[in-house]
Design a protein around this nucleic acid. Structure first.
Lengths: 208, 208
DNA sequence: ATAGAATCGGAACGATCGCCCCGCTTCGAA
DNA sequence: TTCGAAGCGGGGCGATCGTTCCGATTCTAT
């Protein structure tokens, strides 16, 4: 604290002071570079690379994010929230009279397709040497929640076998993402999702 | 499985001088320790740890295996060969009149179950920062071959949908393995394999 | 038993990478 | 315009890990 003349009215939270203009700009640049690089290479990329791509020094990165993982989580959390949002929309769709099965499988495809092309999400989902922290865990929990509710609805509508739970789903998604990631950039996506989806359906008596 | 004996290291004309007694013993110890540790922890384990577990110095490890990857591959190749052998047995089973679908799905379960508990195979399958070399690639190719033939037979027997190829299978297996690995040691295995297997089956017209 | 060589062990090296420090630059309020 | 301080950059520290080196040790042919 200070014995100086000026008693600024913000002794509480730290997020009050507005960032200096260049600082805010640099912060945005770092985040943007981190998004690109993490999405392309996963957690394994050196932090210097991100700093270089952002056109700043490594010290600047640490000024804005206390740790490399914090930066990583800032990026991943953001993406997870977006996916959760899509899930909520799917739920709203059901509430509005949409088909639960369609909503569920559609969402599954979206998640796998999106996460499959982002190495960062793949790393986070599969947990390759990643210790998630509060914020990210909460976001992941929300995602899990949305997915779980969609699953429940689809099961109630008799569109998905009932011997599957959210944990299975998480594992399947993680697996599909890992698989999608392991194949080269080639091979049209969605192939695996279709197979997995078919496996999830209730034994259908489609027939001649 | 994974009790394959080691054929003379495939460098070149190495059969000239027989290894000294203690050297041979140490080599075996290193391989054994590597098997355990790689299976438990994957490629990420420090080499010193292996040396320590083997009761030798790091230098000794390098005397027998030129590089850490070489050691890793020696272990993985061994395991892959064992899996391939099981695949061949399944094929022989078919030739002897066994059911192709049963053989295929059974083999799939075996591969996923086995690889799912061995981090080294998971690493190798998913390719997490692993550059396979000749020997391992050949072994992997053989495995792929066996899997491919089993797939073809099962498809001919109308037990597996025909819009799936070996690459899809590889991806699915890799994904299942990664998933199996990402969940804690809990959760009974085979759950995912069953779902995936159901997805692979030809659309069945089970009765009304 | 003995010498000579094969082998061992673990200290040391070099590269990588996360993170911190500090002198200099740049902002922005007065 | 001025000047205090927020912010910056990048060199550097420390830890980890793969690999190498070499003096000490152990084996085996004689």
């Amino acid at each position: 604290m200070s014995a100086m003349s000026e008693p600024p009215p913000e002794v509480t939270a730290r997020e009050s002071r507005p960032l200096r203009a260049d600082a805010r700009r640099n912060r945005a640049r770092v985040l943007e570079a981190a998004r690109e690089v993490f999405a392309a290479e996963g957690l394994a990329v050196p932090l210097d690379e991100i700093a270089r791509r952002a056109g700043v020094g490594a010290g600047t990165v640490y000024r804005h994010f206390p740790t490399k993982e914090a930066l990583f989580e800032a990026v991943v959390t953001d993406r997870i929230k977006a996916l959760t949002e899509v899930g909520r929309e799917a739920l709203a769709d059901i509430a509005a009279g949409g088909d639960p099965g369609e909503a569920f499988f559609g969402y599954l495809a979206v998640v796998v397709a999106d996460a499959g092309t982002k190495m960062d999400l793949a790393d986070a989902l599969v947990g390759a040497g990643v210790d998630l922290q509060r914020a990210t865990l909460d976001a992941a929990g929300d995602l899990r929640g949305a997915l779980g509710e969609l699953l429940a609805r689809a099961q109630s509508a008799d569109a998905v076998r009932t011997d599957v739970d959210v944990a299975d789903l998480h594992a399947l998604v993680a697996g599909a993402v890992a698989a999608e990631r392991s194949r080269g950039a080639g091979a049209r996506p969605g192939r695996l999702t279709r197979i997995i989806s078919d496996g999830l359906r209730t034994a259908r008596t489609t027939g001649p």
